[in-house]
Design a protein around this nucleic acid. Structure first.
Length: 849
RNA sequence: GGGCGCGUAGCUCAGCGGGAGAGCGCUCCCCUCACACGGGAGAGGUCGUUGGUUCGAUCCCAACCGCGCCCACCA
């Protein structure tokens, strides 16, 4: 080690991530280790396609956890020697991106309509050029070892080709079609949106009961929360089994305010228990009524247009009103005609747009749809036969299958400007669908764009070169291995990837779907910018470092949603600091002329080698089982408690003496544990690794991942050191309770097999054959009278211990005298109980009963 | 209206059939030559309630009480 490096080591008593992380990351990039060659077969290679963040995005806590998990998996597999690719890219995110740029324009006092479609999309591209890499840089901060040289974007030329291919194929199959159908109209976005983009909220409306006069006299009273839609009524329905209305079915009512003749029809859908048992049917503005209307061949009238205003299909006096104004006007008129029979508050769930937050206006619109049922079949099979598995299996498998089995057509067209314009061209009555524009004059391309999720659905293979089936990346890395995501996009995205992948490549896109926690705000609310509950991962990294954030997020995550815990991040920060400082000790004091490796001459060396194997096993197994929380915490425990608190303290004297075995064992254990920790905490481990005198690899990022060696497991050593540790702790406890100062060395005597040297040193006792009177006995050790020891405190302490032992003995005796226990419990459990009882009895006797 | 999950130490969470665990916080003692983002020693839970199954239940079953989520076309 050169003098300057050594000086850094000596002077830096605190791990300072800010100074180091960027430099370490640059070194990884220069090494080219994140950019694998497109070689080998997908079955032997390892790959993950990142859930593409929105180009407009900034790294939030969800990305940070999602990225930490994927990076741990990627680094683990890379270290295991597999050709490993983590595909990176961004999503054009139609609605979100368009909204951002529109807002920017609005700041300049311009609307997108003023500058027109072409200029607007140019503006979005320019925006993307300028800001699109922000989130990519933030992933680098986190340490994400993505292949930054293969960055993809859902609007790249090659990607667009994939989207158009898929659209055209599905059209040819007849699964994509255009129809006038009831859609979820988002008045804020001025576009249709899919079923998955709405959320239902509880709303209290007024439920009006309105009398519709019957032609033959009398009236039929219907209940509605949306009186304004009555302007588009085309029938009244009752349940066929409803005795009350038996006679009116087939007759006609007159629609108040409009005068239209409405047939009274019978339909099972009507609930006789609800309201009056009579339902006004408005096929143009209610999804249920739409279904009923199609069944009974009713006409579909639209009185609310896409602009949210009352159209000229309604009586002229309502024309141009907003729906809300129309409601008021309709109710006022009905009151005037004395047709309102009842009104009461009514709480029900109402659809709102996820994107704009506005109340959805169901209306009939000419849109493009995609039939999903055929594709769903294969995607159901793939999960049922285990080609794709969800982790955790429950409840995601069931939820996925339930949704798939009831899947409905997907409205894929959006009335936006930013996105994949549909590969559809019109000329007069002609429609052309294809990957290339049609020949000939006068064709005009469809102005709608595709739902962003339509292109996202192709992500795992479109990013690798599909539809070019000979693309080397596709051959080497598709199918991918693992999809890491949160459950909120399982339907929106994961399910659709499985469907399109099976349809177009014949393969599942990935074999494992790991569904991780959603991180909530510390108070349990959703983390969101608008609520002000968000915690910025970048700030966390500024404060504590990327390793700390990664450790914290992994440690706090589980199968459940969890509240963000700053304490866990600090635990990670503390661990990084501990790693740095423990390593400083080793690197500054160990001999650098030894060959690192486990040495077996001394029991404590065999002990740490053995404990390390167990840690390697538990951490590896936890990561393999996607149990990152236990992986992180087990690593912490081993490093902190066993390696630092015990082993380092035990070997310090040997280390200072230049003992060869101690140096060799420590350097080896350090290298192993750095490798073990690297997938979770890449920066601090890589930096320390650069100081190792004889590293195995050029860099830790490509160092072999440790494998547990059963040959190094040493039960006897574990038992012996375990006993010594137990004795040390017992002596320390006694000292503390008896109030003996730390500096006071206690005289002690034992006729037990000689305790390990560490006990005397770490418990600060001095064993001798002779010496004074015993004043206490602790776990087989007699403590002798020493100056400064308070006999009264000692007596109290002993009595407390006896008390506890008596209780334990009583408990054990009770249990063992229970015939049910002795007969039916497993022998090992009973034996263990007997041994414990014997030990307690012996200790109690020693203390005088 | 269906389905799912959660209620364990003051806080955030593990554990899920054989004597209750972690981190933070708290108390006491230590600035001991890797680390005060440190070291040592502790205190603190009738494991939501009530029944049941079992030799034995925080863990399995049932009901109830409190939260939360997802799905759903009853105005």
């Amino acid at each position: 080690m050169d003098a300057r490096r050594r000086q850094t080591l000596e002077e830096t008593t605190r791990w300072d991530p800010g100074a180091v992380e960027q430099r370490v990351f640059e070194r990884w990039m220069e090494g080219g280790w994140f950019h694998p060659p497109a070689e080998g077969r997908a079955a032997e290679n390892y790959s993950i396609a990142i859930p593409p963040p929105n180009v407009t995005g900034a790294l939030h806590m969800g990305h940070a956890l999602n990225g930490s998990v994927q990076d741990a998996l990627i680094r683990l597999n890379r270290m295991r020697g597999r050709n490993t690719l983590w595909t990176l890219g961004t999503d054009h995110a139609g609605i979100g991106t368009q909204a951002v740029v529109e807002k920017e324009l609005a700041g300049e006092g311009i609307s997108r309509q003023e500058i027109g479609r072409e200029a607007f999309t140019e503006r979005v591209w320019a925006w993307r050029e300028q800001y699109g890499s922000t989130i990519i840089e933030q992933y680098k901060r986190l340490g994400a070892s993505c292949d930054y040289e293969r960055e993809r974007f859902t609007l790249d030329d090659g990607y667009v080709r994939a989207v158009y291919r898929v659209f055209a194929e599905l059209y040819r199959k007849g699964w994509i079609y255009r129809d006038n159908y009831m859609v979820n109209w988002d008045p804020g976005l001025h576009s249709a949106i899919s079923d998955l983009e709405i959320e239902n909220r509880e709303v209290t409306d007024t439920l009006y009961e309105i009398a519709y006069p019957l032609e033959d006299g009398g009236e039929l009273v219907v209940a509605t929360v949306r009186p304004e839609t009555m302007l588009a009524d085309t029938a009244v329905a009752v349940n066929p089994s409803d005795e009350r209305y038996r006679d009116v079915v087939g007759k006609h009512a007159t629609l108040p305010l409009v005068g239209r003749r409405l047939p009274v029809i019978a339909d099972e859908h009507v609930d006789p228990e609800f309201g009056t048992g009579a339902l006004k049917i408005t096929p143009g503005h209610d999804p249920n009524d739409f279904e009923i209307g199609r069944k009974h061949d009713l006409s579909e009238i639209s009185v609310i247009g896409e602009d949210g205003l009352i159209s000229d299909e309604a009586p002229e006096r309502f024309g141009g009103m907003s729906a809300d104004q129309a409601r008021e006007a309709v109710v006022t008129e009905l009151r005037g005609e004395d047709l309102i029979r009842n009104e009461e508050p009514y709480t029900h769930s109402v659809p709102f747009s996820h994107r704009s937050g506005e109340r959805i206006e169901p209306l009939i619109s000419l849109q493009w749809f995609c039939r999903m049922d055929e594709m769903a079949k294969g995607a159901i099979d793939a999960v049922n036969d285990g080609r794709v598995r969800f982790i955790p299996h429950d409840p995601h498998t069931r939820v996925y299958l339930d949704w798939m089995e009831r899947i409905r057509p997907w409205c894929i067209s959006r009335q936006l400007w930013w996105g994949h314009r549909l590969p559809v061209w019109y000329r007069g009555d002609e429609t052309y669908v294809g990957e290339q524009p049609p020949d000939g004059e006068g064709w005009e391309q469809e102005s709608d764009v595709l739902d962003t999720w339509f292109s996202s659905a192709l992500w795992p293979f479109a990013t690798l070169g599909w539809p070019d089936t000979d693309a080397p990346e596709l051959k080497a890395f598709f199918p991918t291995d693992t999809m890491v995501t949160a459950r909120d996009i399982i339907f929106l995205w994961v399910a659709r990837m499985i469907m399109t992948s099976l349809e177009f490549t014949g393969e599942v896109p990935f074999t494992d779907v790991y569904v991780h926690s959603i991180i909530q705000a510390p108070d349990g609310r959703r983390m969101s910018k608008s609520l002000g509950t968000g915690i910025d991962p970048l700030e966390e990294m500024d404060r504590h470092g990327a390793d700390a954030l990664r450790f914290g997020l992994l440690a706090m995550s589980s199968a459940q949603d969890v509240r963000f815990s700053e304490a866990r991040v600090q635990q990670g920060r503390d661990l990084a600091n501990k790693m740095w400082n423990a390593s400083r000790l080793v690197l500054m004091e160990a001999r650098d002329d030894v060959d690192p490796g486990p040495r077996s001459a001394r029991v404590e060396d065999r002990w740490i080698a053995s404990r390390l194997q167990r840690a390697v096993r538990s951490v590896s197994e936890s990561i393999e089982a996607y149990d990152f929380s236990h992986a992180a915490l087990d690593l912490y425990d081993f490093f902190w408690s066993e390696l630092c608190d015990w082993y380092l303290e035990i070997v310090k004297p040997r280390l200072y003496d230049g003992d060869e075995d101690a140096s060799a064992t420590l350097l080896w254990a350090l290298e192993q544990v750095l490798a073990l920790a690297h997938p979770l905490m890449p920066f601090v481990t890589e930096e320390i690794y650069s100081y190792l005198p004889k590293p195995q690899a050029e860099a830790l990022v490509i160092h072999p991942f440790p494998e547990a060696d059963d040959g190094l497991i040493d039960e006897a050593a574990e038992k012996e050191i375990g006993r010594a540790i137990g004795l040390t702790r017992a002596l320390r406890r006694w000292r503390d309770l008896a109030g003996v100062p730390v500096k006071q060395v206690l005289a002690a005597r034992t006729d037990d097999s000689r305790p390990h040297e560490l006990v005397a040193r770490l418990a600060r006792v001095e064993f001798s054959e002779d010496g004074g009177q015993p004043i206490a006995s602790v776990a087989g050790v007699e403590l002798l009278e020493t100056e400064g020891v308070d006999p009264e405190a000692v007596a109290t302490r002993i009595e407390e211990r006896r008390e506890k032992l008596r209780a334990e003995v009583q408990r054990g005796e009770g249990k063992l005298s229970n015939e049910g226990f002795v007969d039916k419990a497993p022998a090992s459990v009973v034996d263990a109980e007997r041994e414990k009882l014997a030990a307690y009895r012996a200790e109690l006797e020693e203390l005088g009963g």
